[in-house]
Design a protein around this nucleic acid. Structure first.
Lengths: 225, 225
DNA sequence: TAGATTGTTAATCGATTAACAATC
DNA sequence: TAGATTGTTAATCGATTAACAATC
């Protein structure tokens, strides 16, 4: 399976799913998984799994399934989990706090080094090992602490401003949790995590299933279908 | 352009982006947007935008751009925003609370009717207009309150159990915020929102850009490349 | 060994982009 | 009007699936 060149985006998006799968598979089910096992576990076809794994670097040719440790090792490498990444979180609301206090980020190589907010009422507040700092110092914090990644956990209308400040400080990557797009220089990477979009997509596909009506206290208005 | 039949998933995923775009576009920029405007705003090609809009139902043929009110109206319809959906949140950690207290969900048609947890320390706790209820009653709550959607905001290892309980109560859709897949009956719709995956994807693409090294306090281990 | 399962090539399917006539 | 911009068809590109020889 040759050394990885450039993995297509659509494949990269499945890699974390494989990671979660091998974690859940556990020793209970044995040391090996077939493409069939993985496919049925994740709702894919075995072909897709094998094609995807083409981009990973496995040693064997034993043809009795994939070694879960090898899958794990390769995903750790490709997803860069064995490099520490320093993270600052912009926005000390519940979403920002959820990330800051998430117990497992370290497992994936992420280390939250600070959290900032614009609201004077929360600046200075302690939670966990963090003290909320003033967002006006965020660029300096990023610079001084050599932060790699900024998490945008602020309302949509502030997202671009916050992104600009983070980038000014020198982050190379942004995780955008806001329901808006942020524009960034070419050297900066952005991944959007779409919570509100997720709910809206869910609405759509729930509706698709039951063509219409069927809902409780509806206030359907200008329907024209 | 003809009434919608079945919109391809890849198009549906862009619809919320169009929604955010027209919101941000605002009256300041005028009442019309061209496919070119939208494309450059969202990083798409004008062709893609026009092809996508094929699935929406516009009235005109004026050829001077799309009326933002019409785009809005159509997205509201297709994303079912004008129907109220009742939501229960499983997991009263920061993530669950973030959703419960999100001020704008109502705008999109979502109404949080309850939040449940398994932790005795938080059961009974008040926040906002909510009182955290015992997760053991979640099926009953779903049934009694005629809940449409369950949000899974619990750790990965509890996600399947929580999904089962929600489904037992009768939810027709799940928003899964946990880093694992949940298996559900065919009638239930699931959308996964991937926060941890997002960070991992970000790791990968940041690394792709700068082929390797270049990182601070790394503890890179079994590298074999 | 024989059955199982990979790695890989080729076929299919679907999504994106290009191009342009229609028309405001 | 003339330039702009759509709606739509056709071409390209890429991703998924099928199929199967290699081989453990």
């Amino acid at each position: 399976m040759s050394v990885s060149k450039k993995i297509p985006a659509v494949v990269v998006q499945r890699l974390p799913q494989y990671l979660a799968f091998v974690r859940d598979w556990g020793i209970a089910n044995g040391k090996y998984v077939s493409s069939e096992d993985i496919a049925s576990g994740l709702g894919l076809t075995p072909s897709t799994v094998r094609q995807d794994f083409t981009h990973l670097d496995f040693s064997d040719g034993k043809r009795r399934g994939y070694d879960i440790d090898e899958i794990n090792r390769e995903l750790i490498r490709v997803l860069d989990m064995d490099n520490d990444k320093r993270v600052v979180i912009a926005g000390a609301g519940n979403l920002g706090r959820a990330l800051a206090l998430h117990g497992n980020l370290g497992t994936y190589g992420f280390h939250v080094r600070g959290i900032v907010d614009i609201n004077p009422k929360v600046i200075g507040e302690r939670f966990g090992k963090f003290v909320v700092q003033n967002i006006k110092y965020v660029a300096k914090i990023v610079r001084d602490e050599r932060i790699d990644i900024g998490v945008i956990a602020v309302p949509a209308k502030s997202a671009q401003n916050v992104a600009d400040r983070l980038i000014l400080g020198g982050v190379r990557g942004l995780l955008n949790l806001a329901f808006t797009r942020v524009v960034v220089p070419k050297k900066v990477r952005v991944i959007d995590v779409r919570i509100i979009s997720g709910l809206l997509l869910l609405s759509h596909i729930m509706n698709e299933q039951f063509p219409s009506s069927h809902v409780h206290g509806s206030r359907r208005s200008q329907t024209n279908a």
